[in-house]
């Protein structure tokens, strides 16, 4: 497929290098296979994630988008039957290397889930959770500052600043999801993975999250899984189309949506899939 575009970074896996489209390489995956027990969910996927761009994963249900996304911060480690093959790097470092500390990795590669999952704690404690476990703030004032900054970046500060001690689960769905984004931002990650972050939200809350993704772009490398074509087109610069565990096509979003090379991609985008 797009071996041409991928071969350059392969030769220099250790240093941040410009990707084909001009972005700075943040994460790379090479020949990744994922198995659940004997069942293969991802086949030979190679992909680059760049610092400046939002990367969208699209594809029909069950094609392995979530599975692949979760390999990027090793969340598949929590599934006992899952097994990952291949090489995935973050800033050139192999994240599956034996000496890689998963705790550190997940602090650098944060994740936002499909369903908002705030902890049953106060809004403040939800955001402070990550900084606490990673020891990022020693004084209360430092923590206050981290919490405020994260909530501001997540566009939630004005809505919750007067009730930081209320339970995070008492917020609306959209607010909860922004709280989860604030929680992920609080540990100052380099990459943020989002697995269908808007699928449980109404259109207005969705618009807010999309706006937020625009604002966060550049500061964090962002990968987003979505079922919504318009959303992929709106928020992303790069799009990867998965089908049956394989990466069918990967390229500039504008290119994929206007002029897909593969018929399967075209069929999916135009809604001709089942």
């Amino acid at each position: 497929m797009n071996d041409q575009t991928m071969s350059a970074p392969l030769l220099h896996p250790s240093a941040p290098s410009p990707a084909s489209d001009g972005g700075t390489l943040k994460m790379t995956a090479r020949n990744v296979n994922v198995f659940y027990g004997a069942k293969q969910a991802i086949r030979d996927v190679s992909i680059d994630v760049t610092q400046e761009n939002v990367t969208a994963f699209i594809g029909p249900s069950g094609c392995g988008k979530s599975t692949f996304l979760r390999t990027l911060n090793r969340m598949n480690d929590t599934v006992s039957s899952a097994r990952v093959e291949g090489r995935i790097t973050l800033d050139g470092e192999d994240i599956y290397a034996p000496d890689m500390d998963v705790v550190q990795l997940r602090a650098r590669v944060g994740m936002v889930f499909q369903k908002p999952n705030p902890f049953p704690k106060s809004i403040y404690e939800n955001v402070a959770y990550g900084p606490r476990i990673h020891g990022l703030a020693s004084a209360r004032a430092d923590m206050d500052q981290i919490v405020e900054k994260s909530l501001r970046r997540a566009g939630l500060w004005d809505e919750v600043k007067d009730r930081l001690n209320d339970s995070g689960t008492a917020l609306s769905g959209g607010q909860q999801q922004r709280l989860c984004i604030a929680r992920a931002i609080a540990v100052d990650p380099e990459v943020i993975l989002m697995d269908e972050p808007c699928s449980a939200l109404d259109p207005i809350a969705t618009a807010k999250i999309e706006e937020l993704i625009h604002e966060l772009r550049g500061r964090y490398a962002i990968v987003i899984v979505t079922h919504n074509m318009q959303q992929a087109a709106r928020v992303s610069q790069r799009t990867a189309f998965f089908h049956l565990g394989t990466l069918v096509e990967y390229g500039d979003t504008s290119e994929i949506f206007t002029n897909p090379r593969e018929t399967r991609t075209k069929d999916y985008i135009t809604g001709r899939y089942g």
């Binding site: 911060n73 969340m75 929590t78 998963v102 705790v103 550190q104 990795l105 997940r106 602090a107 944060g110 994740m111 889930f113 999952n117 705030p118 902890f119 959770y129 990550g130 476990i133 990673h134 989860c180 929680r183 992920a184 540990v187």
Partner: peptide, 8 residues
């Protein structure tokens, strides 16, 4: 998952 994904 939320907690583990934070690096806990």
């Amino acid at each position: 998952d939320g907690s583990l994904a934070m690096g806990a």
